[in-house]
């Protein structure tokens, strides 16, 4: 019981996730700044931002639904922290592995997006409402290719559990090369999931002020920011667990491998963020449905055929 609580709340659960996400945010911003030939933030910058927001006055708009408005940041944070528990991080097995945890993680990761939509909707501000609608439009476009791309390797491994995928691919490491198209699709689609450039339509600072979070201030905004950073960590861990399942039996080596893998994924994501500009919403829908979904579908068909051959 105590051990379980320790795992869930401290390591590798909530507290570790928060600390690592602040570090992740720093690395992301630093890479972004260095690629733009800037100096970039100092290492404690995300922590300073978080503490400052905690200490600021919290304003709840008169027309907003107060209960939901204050409840949503916590729900999104909780969903992300729960998803983290089911991903194999340092060891070949996750904390609580069961058959089908891949599906559970994917659906837990959808909850924050729905929370962002509701947050915008219940703020009852014009900017926030447009941002919320865009969040939902985005959800309908990237979710399908992302799910299909993440399920393709699982189909080849003939299992719905993340630990099973790890076990399968450590026996046949070369089969990982077959999943490269799915990997590319997942990387592009998760930029949409994480609301990052080129798919940051719901936050679009120049047109929508800050989109969904326009009315959030103080500690609720702090928790939302933390949740977004944590989502970045969880999605990178998930992609690392599905496409680069390299794990070691020793905990220390496992941590080193995990950090290197996630930082590699973060570097790719930051690179995309730097070199792209924001696209329009209908361009995003076209991109996801016309290009990403067929590639992911082809990958699934190819994997099904290969499974018969291999």
């Amino acid at each position: 019981m105590l051990a379980a609580l320790f795992h869930i709340l401290i390591f590798p659960g909530l507290l570790f996730l928060m600390a690592y996400s602040l570090f992740f945010d720093f690395v992301d911003r630093k890479i972004y700044a260095r690629l733009q030939n800037r100096t970039g933030p100092r290492w404690y910058q995300p922590l300073a931002d978080f503490l400052k927001l905690l200490g600021k006055e919290t304003i709840i708009p008169d027309h907003a639904a107060k209960k939901i408005f204050t409840f949503l940041p916590i729900v999104s944070m909780a969903a992300i922290a729960a998803a983290y528990l089911y991903i194999p991080l340092f060891l070949p097995e996750s904390l609580y592995p069961f058959d089908g945890d891949l599906i559970v993680v994917l659906y837990l990761l959808t909850i924050p997006t729905v929370c962002f939509f509701l947050a915008g909707w219940f703020s009852t501000s014009v900017f926030a409402t447009i941002g919320a609608v865009r969040t939902l439009t985005q959800l309908f476009s990237y979710e399908v290719p992302l799910f299909m791309a993440l399920l393709a390797p699982a189909l080849l491994a003939d299992t719905w559990s993340l630990s099973g995928i790890t076990a399968y691919y450590s026996q046949h490491p070369f089969y990982l090369l077959l999943n490269i198209p799915a990997f590319l699709v997942a990387i592009i689609a998760c930029q949409g999931k994480l609301d990052r450039v080129p798919f940051d339509l719901s936050e679009a600072e120049t047109e929508l002020a800050s989109g969904t979070f326009v009315e959030y201030s103080g500690r609720y905004y702090a928790i939302f920011r933390l949740a977004i950073d944590c989502e970045l960590v969880v999605v990178s861990s998930l992609i690392a667990a599905v496409y680069l399942p390299m794990h070691s039996d020793s905990l220390l080596l496992g941590i080193v491998i995990y950090v290197l893998e996630t930082l590699l994924i973060l570097f790719i994501l930051a690179l995309i963020r730097t070199i792209m500009a924001r696209i329009r919403i209908e361009q995003m829908v076209v991109l996801c449905w016309k290009y990403l979904t067929p590639i992911a579908l082809l990958q699934i068909i190819a994997n099904l055929l290969l499974k018969g051959v291999l």
């Binding site: 700044a33 100096t39 970039g40 910058q45 800050s210 201030s217």
Partner: peptide, 17 residues
């Protein structure tokens, strides 16, 4: 590069100091 001093430009007054 104001970000090295921690300054960020925000789009909404709710987030600004």
């Amino acid at each position: 590069d104001l970000e090295r001093l921690g300054m960020l430009q925000q789009g909404t007054p709710r987030h600004a100091d």
